[in-house]
């Protein structure tokens, strides 16, 4: 077997992991699987695309940085897009999820609402940007040769590095800061958290901001490495869920490992069965983990 499969799998897996940490955070603290998370990924990519175009128009375009295909315009746009995606998530929570939570709606009703929101957002994005794919840059990437005949592009390396940095940063944030401690307290027991002096609404807003910013990062990475389409996030949703459940809902390192497993699974599927079956890998892994170990590889029993 060509070892290149592993490089492709790890690159794809790091992208999935990035999206899955956001999903798993929201899932464990707000206690529902958000089907609109994929649309946050998509919206993030399109926000960055639009902002990059605006910045490009304002300064007359920026040259690529070093060996990468993207310039400073895209880096700046990425930061702006994270803010915009976070705002979108907060708006969604304010008009939809928060009202349902306040009413004491069952988890599954909130899931259904997220399902409706996902559909509306996806089609809304398609209306604005049309269904045809878009690209951040047309620059060609020359793959670097690694020992063993492996090839990897500088952009892929940048994506891996970004994932690593963000995962470590989020992990430290959640385990070491007061805000992260509040998030873990709300995750365990929202009612007690309020009695212990935590502003639960503010903590939930913080979770959305963090989850959305990570979704946006995943969207921009996917947009850079592949392409930007209105369905990109929706197509990523099953791999994201598979990764989150594989890692144990709520476990950030678990989500990343789960993402890598799904990414490798997809790459192996492509190698052995053909590219048309790629999307089946996440489903098979999901079914396998539900049969064997429903709490995930790193999940606590009863989690």
């Amino acid at each position: 077997m060509n070892p290149q499969v592993f490089v492709d799998g790890i690159v794809a897996g790091s992208m999935i992991g990035l999206g899955a940490i956001g999903l798993t955070l929201v899932y464990s603290i707000l206690r529902f699987p958000n089907f609109a998370h994929g649309e946050l990924v998509t919206a993030g990519a399109y926000f960055a695309l639009s902002l990059a175009a605006l910045i490009g128009a304002a300064v007359g375009g920026t040259a690529p940085i070093g060996p990468f295909s993207f310039g400073w315009a895209i880096v700046l746009a990425a930061l702006g897009a994270m803010v915009a995606t976070a705002a979108l998530a907060l708006a969604l929570d304010a008009v939809l999820f928060q009202r349902l939570r306040r009413r004491g709606a069952a988890v599954i009703i909130i899931v259904m609402a997220s399902f409706g929101a996902s559909l509306a957002l996806r089609s809304g994005i398609e209306f604005v940007y049309t269904a045809s794919p878009a690209y951040f840059t047309r620059e060609l990437q020359i793959a670097m040769r690694l020992p063993g005949g492996l090839r990897v592009t500088p952009d892929q390396l940048a994506a891996l590095a970004l994932t690593a940095v963000l995962v470590v940063a989020v992990h430290l944030f959640v385990t070491r800061t007061a805000a992260g401690r509040a998030m873990r307290a709300v995750r365990e027991n929202p009612a007690l958290a309020a009695l212990a002096g935590i502003d639960v609404d503010r903590t939930i807003r913080l979770v959305w901001v963090l989850g959305a910013a990570l979704a946006c990062a995943a969207g921009i990475t996917a947009g850079l490495l592949i392409q930007i389409r209105p369905t990109m996030g929706f197509d990523l949703l099953l791999p994201l869920f598979a990764a989150a459940i594989l890692g144990g809902v709520g476990s950030l390192p678990g989500a990343v490992v789960g993402g890598l497993v799904v990414g490798l699974g997809e790459a192996l599927t492509v190698a052995f069965l053909g590219a048309e079956w790629r999307a089946g890998a996440a489903f098979m892994l999901l079914v396998a983990i539900l049969v064997v170990r429903p709490n995930g590889l790193f999940g606590r029993a009863g989690g």
Binding site: A113, L121, G124
Partner: peptide
């Protein structure tokens, strides 16, 4: 696609 947005919003 607006038609679909409408269904999602209605839901």
């Amino acid at each position: 696609s607006l038609q679909i947005v409408m269904i999602g919003l209605a839901l």
